[in-house]
């Protein structure tokens, strides 16, 4: 079981790892720094079938998060993977645009350590344990 995190900030990737470690989630965090790479990786079917959640930043180098999101949601197989936008931006246009492009949720990265770790715990417990994906999604 994997979470794919697309984020160009290694410090945030470490914080998410720390959060997952603390809540004991049995999941592997797979981090990618830019949007093009993310879509390429997901297109390899085998990888996509193992990814249970995508955490996608909005501001990414090369291709921005919303463009990556549209590519994922326009793909008949990849679209089944839940995508949570995970970004510093509180701008209304980023939030609205993400939902319009098919985001399953939009979470603003909290400023404080405790809040950040709580957000990671809540995200992983909901999307990995509570959310029931439609039949067939596990294997594309």
């Amino acid at each position: 079981m994997k979470i794919l995190m697309v984020d160009d900030n290694p410090a945030d990737i470490d914080l998410v790892n720390e959060g997952l470690r603390r809540c004991g989630a049995k999941v592997e965090l797979c981090a990618i720094h830019d949007g093009i790479e993310a879509v390429e990786l997901l297109r390899g079917l085998e990888t996509a079938s193992l990814v249970r959640l995508i955490l996608l930043d909005v501001n990414l180098p090369k291709v921005n998060g919303q463009a990556v999101l549209r590519q994922i949601k326009n793909d008949p197989i990849l679209r089944r993977v839940p995508v949570v936008m995970f970004s510093t931006s509180r701008a209304a246009r980023d939030i609205r645009g993400s939902y319009e492009s098919g985001a399953n949720s939009y979470v603003v990265k909290p400023g404080g350590l405790k809040d950040f770790l709580s957000a990671v715990r809540s995200l992983s417990s909901y999307w990995l344990e509570c959310a029931i994906l439609p039949a067939g999604s596990e294997h594309g």
Binding site: N9, A11, D12, L15, E18, T88, K109, G111, G112, L113, K114, F116
Partner: peptide, 17 residues
Amino acid sequence: LQEPLRMVAAYTELLAE
């Protein structure tokens, strides 16, 4: 400024912890 500052805040808190 928020983005780098968030890093400083989170990691100084982590250090403190």
